[in-house]
Design a protein around this nucleic acid. Structure first.
Length: 880
RNA sequence: GGGCGCUUAGCUCAGGGGGAGAGCGCUUCCUUGACGCGGAAGAGGUCAGAGGUUCAAAUCCUCUAGCGCCCACCA
């Protein structure tokens, strides 16, 4: 492509579409087991099928793409395996709601018809997110796109279930589970969100049946007293010694409820006695088991009061019942105390409803006892590392306190539990759909109606997507995967379970590193939410500013320590400016260097600016590599940004212009090729972050192929050149001092300026070597070094790194301004010098501090004194 | 009730024992032959507070205050 077509503003839209299509066409993202290369694999945390890309995805995907693209360039066989999740509850609720809009209740059309609707829905919207991921530039291997309900994964889920079942790690049991009355399904402990609610602690009175007194109990859910079957106290509690063994009378049913003793009761809480509602509280359930109390389930699945309760309350919603029961008890004079009581209550992570601890009948559980130990060990012995490492503690603690995992859901959309029952009471699990009972041969078998928790299939993701349970070449080659990238909100829900199941079923860790990033928030650091109206749509940002800009602005925020990532449109805008900056720097460089593969000129042909630039570029490359090894995307992005903008463009290009425009042909060629060489390598460094603009420019070097599969820049430690950097820094400081002087006096940029510098030999040679460059960027007409102690009368004196810079004053400046400037500077010098002197005087400093530090302090003091002398001479000369 | 993290420029944050930094915002100047999606020069901070360790503390330790997050079956 010729440079005539490089117009001055970079327009991403067309470029991005063109290159993405091309990359797909050339199969650059496809990975295959390859014995000649080392594997690198990331499995994408599968977004929900019904979902649309939001900022959280955009961040998550950008980080993964940066890692994958870099590894691919480093010569790894890099696989980024994409897919989507069926998201049981979320999707079922969504489709159910759509049906309701058509006036259809899912119960009326039945399971099969409903599922058909969900599949239609999935087929219609299921690839929305895939299209959006492509717009972001994600380099996934789309040939390997998976879905948690596709055939292979259905099989994997069945095999996993049956193996766990046969090993005794999956069982069916009846106990209190978390019930969402809105979604009408059980939830695991991890699917609850604890939120504080303004509750009320109500104490009410149970009279003893024999009339000899009463027992007071406190509760926040007084409606559950409808299902009370006893009262419990601590066995050692002397206050209740007399009443244990007696009964209290239920005010509505007149039933006699035993007072029992149980260790689970905390005597110091409330009255020391607790009502026992076995069907609605896990602790009460256990107390009832121990004491043989009956269970009365007073709630229906939808959260209304059931027919097991006294008639006057039946059918009331649970919250309405809470008010009614209290009212009636109050009328009867049995309320002893009411007080506000803020406390944490579990809420459904999908719909936000208050979750009820409820006895729902038999549920399926995974026994975790044998799974948690190995999962803990994997983190403890470093086979799995967390970034940041502080997540290891919470992970371990979670495993230590883990209770059995309820995996059955009372839904239709999901993996049906592969267990069948026959009329003769047999129960068996099977990978294939059976025709008859395996025990008695009865053909009259029925499958369990429930489906599995979505996370049951998700936990298999790192290996099920690679072909497990078959020992496929992919599984052998890519498993364990390299790194899992996700937000901390699913650390327990998903990450920990992948580790447990991976170790048990696939017999190895699922991934070596877990990278946990923060949450994208709005620019004021508030959560993005529809109700706040502060949601930023990544697609809108891509349309407006380009995918590169979106990616870069996100990567720039993401360090492993950040929990919150404040993000605003202005960040994307800034990133677009950056893309434009690169584009224009490239226009300059390419315009001078021509096309073709850049070749570095021999060392002796490199000028001082080129040596400086090569040295700075190597420093940048090293810093980027180091940052990315530690997943410090923020540091890596900022390093490249600073190098390109401040070093390459602001100084490098500006200082090279004399050689480029007016140099002798060999110098010109040398300058142009160093610039091209540095630019080309910098594009490769930046490519994982901004794949499109880098490809578009990189193509003009006619290296051949695509930057997607170009080599990652190799180290060139020999380019580090401290002397060149030191010399350049002097030139930089000199330029800045002169510019500042000019600006401070309001001198027009074009005003002629003569500058004389009195300094040592090394710096004099810098003045000679970079004379033209310094004059150009500082707009100096005449720049020379000064010999001997000549009379500086009539000059302004600037101190630059121990050099004395003289600028003629005559008719040039405002004396008052200059005096003020000098006075201000002298104040600063005074303060600094005093500080340095005091430090040197402090007892112990010279003897205890490292010689280097002492020397540094002395040099600083000397330099300040020198500058002070220069400025004081100036001050008296000006007569102010 | 436990645990973790944060408090540095107007905003968002980096730094991590020896000269207070970046981006954005702000002020002033500049159509210099890549870029006004640009360039240059500036203003702006007792690094939350108190104590301690040290020759030296924004940095390490202790405590205090405020904020945030995670975990938890005290009804």
């Amino acid at each position: 492509m010729s440079r005539e077509r490089m117009v001055s503003a970079y327009e991403p839209a067309e470029v991005e579409q063109r290159w993405y299509a091309r990359w797909l066409q050339d199969g650059l993202f496809h990975a295959e087991p390859n014995p000649d290369k080392k594997p690198f694999c990331i499995v994408l945390p599968p977004p929900n099928v019904t979902g649309a890309l939001h900022m959280g995805h955009a961040l998550d995907h950008t980080l993964q793409d940066v890692l994958v693209r870099r590894k691919r360039m480093q010569g790894f066989e890099a696989l980024w395996l994409p897919g989507t999740d069926h998201a049981g509850i979320g999707t079922e609720v969504l489709v159910g709601r759509e049906l309701l809009k058509e006036g259809i209740d899912k119960q009326d059309i039945g399971r099969e018809a409903f599922l058909q609707r969900v599949w239609e829905w999935k087929d219609r919207y299921g690839d929305t997110i895939v299209q959006q991921m492509k717009a972001l530039g994600n380099s996934c291997d789309w040939d390997r796109l998976r879905f948690t309900m596709d055939e292979g994964l259905q099989h994997a889920v069945r095999v996993a279930f049956v193996r766990l079942y046969e090993d005794g790690l999956i069982y069916r049991g009846e106990r209190i589970i978390n019930w969402c009355p809105t979604d009408r399904t059980a939830l695991s402990d991890s699917e609850l969100e604890h939120r504080d609610v303004e509750g009320e602690l109500v104490t009410f009175r149970y009279p003893l049946s024999d009339g000899s007194g009463h027992v007071d109990v406190a509760t926040t859910r007084i409606e559950t007293m409808l299902g009370d079957t006893g009262v419990a106290v601590h066995p050692d509690d002397a206050r209740f010694r007399e009443v244990v063994g007696k009964t209290v009378r239920h005010p509505f049913t007149d039933a006699d409820l035993p007072v029992v003793a149980d260790e689970a009761v905390d005597p110091s809480f409330g009255t020391g006695a607790v009502k026992v509602t076995p069907a609605h509280d896990p602790t009460d359930f256990e107390i009832a088991e121990r004491s043989g109390l009956p269970r009365i389930n007073v709630l229906n699945a939808d959260g209304t009061i059931s027919d097991a309760a006294p008639e006057e309350f039946r059918g009331l919603d649970r919250f309405e019942a809470r008010r009614r029961v209290k009212e009636v008890l109050r009328e009867r004079g049995q309320i002893v105390n009411e007080e506000p009581y803020p406390h944490a209550v579990g809420h459904c992570y999908r719909c936000g409803s208050e979750v009820e601890p409820w006895l729902s009948g038999k549920q399926w559980f995974v026994a975790v006892e044998r799974l948690t130990g190995p999962a803990k060990d994997a983190a403890a012995d470093g086979r799995i590392r967390f970034f940041p490492e502080r997540w290891k503690g919470p992970y371990t603690a979670w495993l230590e306190n883990l209770r059995d995992w309820n995996i059955s859901r009372q839904l239709w959309w999901g993996h049906r539990i592969p267990v069948w029952y026959c009329p003769n009471g047999h129960e068996f699990a099977s990978v294939e759909d059976p025709d008859a009972c395996v025990e008695c041969g009865s053909g009259d078998i029925e499958q369990d109606p429930d489906v599995l928790d979505t996370w049951f299939s998700s936990q298999l993701w790192p290996f099920s997507t690679l072909g497990w349970p078959e020992r496929t070449p992919e599984l052998e080659y890519f498993y364990p995967t390299s790194v899992l990238v996700t937000g901390y909100e699913i650390l327990y829900l998903w990450v920990a379970r992948m580790i447990m199941s991976g170790l048990y079923l696939a017999e190895d860790i699922p991934f070596a590193h877990v990278l946990i990033h923060g949450l994208v928030r709005d620019e004021r650091n508030r959560k993005m939410s529809k109700s706040l109206g502060n949601v930023i749509d990544p697609l809108e940002m891509i349309d407006k500013y380009g995918a590169d800009a979106v990616r870069f602005s996100l990567a720039r925020l993401a360090g492993p320590e950040q929990q919150n990532l404040p993000f605003g449109e202005r960040d994307v805008e800034a990133a677009r400016h950056f893309a434009n900056k690169i584009w224009n720097a490239a226009r300059l460089v390419l315009g001078e260097s021509g096309e073709g593969t850049p070749q570095l000129p021999l060392d002796e042909h490199r000028g001082p600016v080129e040596r400086w630039l090569l040295s700075r570029h190597e420093a940048c490359r090293a810093a980027v590599d180091e940052a990315l090894e530690d997943y410090r995307f923020d540091a890596a992005a900022q390093t490249i940004h600073r190098f390109i903008w401040s070093e390459l463009a602001d100084w490098g290009l500006e200082m090279e212009k004399p050689r480029l425009y007016e140099g002798e042909p060999p110098e010109r060629a040398a300058a142009a090729s160093v610039l091209a060489w540095v630019l080309e390598r910098t594009l490769r460094l930046l490519h994982p972050f901004m794949p499109f603009v880098t490809e578009e420019i990189w193509q003009r070097f006619a290296v051949g192929g695509s930057i997607v599969v170009a080599d990652w820049p190799e180290p060139h430690p020999e380019h580090r050149d401290e002397q060149a950097e030191e010399r350049f820094a002097f030139a930089e400081d000199l330029v800045t001092a002169v510019r500042s002087f000019r600006s401070g006096h309001g001198l027009p940029p074009g005003a002629p300026l003569t500058v004389r510098v009195r300094t040592d030999g090394e710096r004099r040679s810098v003045l000679e070597e970079l004379n033209e460059e310094i004059r150009r960027v500082a707009r100096i007409d005449d720049l020379q070094s000064l010999d001997g102690p000549s009379e500086p009368a009539g000059h302004a004196r600037l101190a630059v790194r121990d050099a004395e810079v003289l600028v003629p004053l005559v008719g040039v400046i405002d004396t008052d301004v200059e005096c003020e400037r000098i006075r201000k500077r002298l104040e600063g010098i005074g303060a600094d010098a005093e500080k340095a002197a005091r430090k040197l005087d402090t007892p112990g400093f010279v003897s205890k501090a490292p010689a280097e530090v002492v020397e540094q302090q002395r040099a600083k003091l000397a330099s300040l004194e020198e500058e002070r002398a220069v400025l004081e001479a100036q001050l008296s000369e000006l007569g102010c």
